[in-house]
């Protein structure tokens, strides 16, 4: 069955791909730490969409369960990540990622 509610599966996957690449652009091009984080969330959501798509198309419930867990983990990650951003801002008064280059050679 190649249709989920009448729409071919590749359409969903293409949408997920577009979301993923947009998120990738954001990660690579933007210099604000919070915006980068939001782009990462975009990528995660793209992956969620893929999971749901395949769960529906193969009539398995496992994919939806995974997405549930991914959301929980994304929430945890958001908390930690933003805590780190706050801590860095406290030290360096900026969230510009180019300034965080202590690991330079």
């Amino acid at each position: 069955m190649n249709l989920i509610s009448g729409i071919p599966v590749p359409y969903y996957l293409s949408l997920a791909g577009i979301m993923f690449t947009i998120g990738m652009f954001g990660v690579l091009l933007r210099r604000n730490a919070v915006v980068i984080f939001m782009s990462v969330e975009l990528m995660l959501n793209a992956v969620n969409l893929v999971f749901i798509t395949f769960s529906k198309s193969t009539a398995q419930v496992g994919g939806e369960v995974i997405v549930f867990f991914v959301m929980a983990i994304a929430a945890a990650e958001a908390a930690i990540g933003l805590a780190i951003v706050i801590a860095i801002h406290r030290q360096k008064k900026t969230v510009h990622v180019d300034e965080m280059n202590l690991l330079k050679w």
Binding site: M38, L49, E64, M71, A74, A79
Partner: peptide
């Protein structure tokens, strides 16, 4: 998600992502 009939996940998306995570951001 709702179009795909994944109602539970759609609800979770709004509650968790849009409601909690983005508020935090």
């Amino acid at each position: 998600y709702a179009i795909m009939n994944a109602i539970f996940i759609a609800t979770m998306q709004v509650l968790v992502y849009a409601g909690a995570i983005m508020v935090l951001v």
